[in-house]
């Protein structure tokens, strides 16, 4: 199995679809936020998707299906293929060690292996995604899915939960993309598969 790809094709496909869904959800979500801001700032129209509330909601509620169905495929595939084992072990001590090494630029990139900081970030962003879906469904259906809305602290609080979970995903994306720029050789395998050494 010397020619096994670093990233098997289902993972690459789901990663691409997820990237598209995340961009659409965040861009349209920012436009929706602007119609009733939670804080004193709004997102400039140049970086939002859908130029008015109606279009933004239409994109948000269309792309949520891609996000959720693709996410479910990922969970199913991850469990079936054993991919989930790449996220373990994950202990605070390991994260601390790898984080210190990374900040001193002494953490080598091991092809096909996640270091502890990566594991923490990936598990963290998956949890943020789960919170986004639960709070989003609660905001969308505060009557029919009242239990999800209540779980997030009611309609008003659920909007903040949704916002902060989005912020966590955006922070992840900043680090994620910064690391791709720092180690550009990781990009082609995520598109073409690459070959594990």
């Amino acid at each position: 199995m010397a020619n096994k790809p670093i990233h098997p094709w289902p993972l690459r496909l789901m990663h691409a679809l997820n990237a598209l869904a995340i961009i659409m959800m965040i861009g349209s979500g920012w436009q929706i936020y602007d119609s009733s801001p939670l804080f004193t700032f709004t997102f400039p129209a140049t970086i939002t998707i859908g130029q008015w509330l109606g279009a933004a909601i239409a994109w948000h509620l269309a792309c949520m299906w891609l996000l959720v169905l693709n996410g479910l495929c990922y969970v199913g595939w991850s469990l079936a293929s054993g991919h989930w084992r790449k996220f373990l072990p994950l202990t605070p001590r390991l994260v601390w060690q790898d984080l210190n090494a990374a900040l001193r630029f002494r953490l080598p990139h091991e092809t096909g292996v996640y270091n502890a900081v990566q594991r923490l970030l990936y598990v963290g962003v998956l949890l943020a995604g789960l919170v986004l879906v639960i709070s989003g469904l609660g905001i969308w259906k505060p009557v029919q899915l009242w239990f999800l809305c209540d779980l997030c602290g009611g309609f008003v609080v659920a909007r903040y939960v949704h916002f902060f979970a989005m912020s966590a995903v955006v922070l992840f994306l900043v680090v994620h993309l910064a690391l791709v720029i720092a180690v550009p050789k990781v990009l082609p395998p995520m598109i073409f598969g690459g070959r594990a050494p």
């Binding site: 239409a58 509620l61 269309a62 299906w65």
Partner: peptide
């Protein structure tokens, strides 16, 4: 978007 909106109408009616 219109097609997805009709689909969401059906989902909401079922929900």
């Amino acid at each position: 978007l219109s097609a997805m909106s009709r689909w969401n109408d059906m989902v909401q009616a079922a929900l």
